[in-house]
Design a binder for these strands. Structure first.
Lengths: 203, 203
DNA sequence: CTAGCAAGTGGACGCGGCGTCCGAATGGGT
DNA sequence: ACCCATTCGGACGCCGCGTCCACTTGCTAG
């Protein structure tokens, strides 16, 4: 029918929803681009809706139409990366994907998460507002994954252990280790590998 | 020549600092009492300076004289409990105090922290504002303690493991497990015991 | 006992972000 | 070219913050 010309080739989250108006799509792209910049250079926790609106050249109500707060904008920017990781966990090559023993898969998951945190720390910090972290769909996914690995390895205390094992991946813990403790991503990943081995192999 | 020493550290309702005026002491007691109530029944994270001032029957500037924000008031209320725990860790009976093998002491520390969280969760949540948790003196103490235990047990990755092992004690992780996951303090403590054993005994 | 002074107090003020509302503009189908 | 639904964005009221300053209170020296 209507061959819609996709003129927004540089658009971060390219595709626009069916029936979305052209100006809406354009503004959404502007908002996301501006937000990405703002979160990246500055304190991600203190980015305000007004900041984003001004940087995007858009009214504040336009922002509120789609996003309730800065955190959800950061979340939108993170989504594609998280989805990608989820894909690799479900159907990628081992040890991250299926096929490796649970302890190795857990270690690989830790390594992948460290990678994600390292590459997008500002966004992750911006997306984390208090207990909101646990409410994300992503947390539920990590949770289900790790829980399955624990069950597969016949670990004790499966249900209670899951959140304990996910706790070190909290963004501010990572930030603290990187910036206050001057630890490298490799050191952090190594410690998490030790943890995975201790819980799933030893003990 | 009054050698007055302003103690900006709010100590809980008890004695008053030397040279502190009677009205100041009375107000400080009022403030702490009011704050304790407010943090306890309501969302600890949304307690505001104005709330506390109103509940205490005190002007806002009076609050700001001693405490920069609600979090530091919660911290003041927590201090005595944390000090007590620190005392038991340093010179109390084993397994929490010295004398037990590291793995058992770590498990005992976890149990004691779960106890503290369980009894004072509202205060702990109120005292935790973002990355402020790591800046607390208390965190440094827990950190040094766990680090010593790890070193004593000749664990690998000592420095990087410390913060990983402390992460599950983050107040919002605990709250999530209790309120969303409906887990009992015993279950949480058991999972942490498993963790301690896995890292220090096994692995 | 009184007077003086410094510490303590609290109401008022300006600032900035929040979230919403409504008149204006814009887009896309007819 | 028209029309209506959707979207836009400036403006508004609200609330909490943090500070300032004029007033009050407690302590102490004379």
């Amino acid at each position: 029918m209507n061959g819609r010309t996709d003129r927004l080739t540089g658009d971060p989250l390219g595709d626009r929803a069916p029936g979305e108006r052209a100006d809406a799509a354009r503004n959404r792209a502007r908002v996301l681009a501006a937000a990405r910049t703002l979160f990246a250079d500055g304190d991600p926790r203190s980015v305000t809706m007004e900041d984003i609106a001004r940087a995007a050249g858009v009214g504040r109500a336009t922002l509120y139409r789609r996003y309730p707060d800065p955190a959800s904008i950061a979340q939108a920017l993170l989504d594609e990366h998280e989805r990608d990781l989820q894909q690799r966990m479900m159907s990628g090559p081992p040890p991250l994907g299926p096929g490796a023993p649970p302890a190795e898969r857990l270690a690989a998951f830790y390594a992948a998460m460290v990678d994600l945190l390292e590459q997008h720390l500002p966004l992750v910090l911006g997306a984390e507002v208090g207990p909101a972290r646990f409410a994300t769909g992503a947390y539920g996914f990590w949770r289900a994954h790790v829980r399955a690995l624990l069950a597969q390895a016949a670990a004790p205390q499966v249900d209670a252990l899951v959140d304990v094992l996910l706790a070190p991946l909290a963004p501010d813990v990572y930030q603290y280790q990187r910036e206050q403790r001057r630890r490298t991503p490799e050191q952090i990943a190594a410690a998490l590998r030790t943890l995975a081995a201790g819980v799933l192999d030893g003990g």
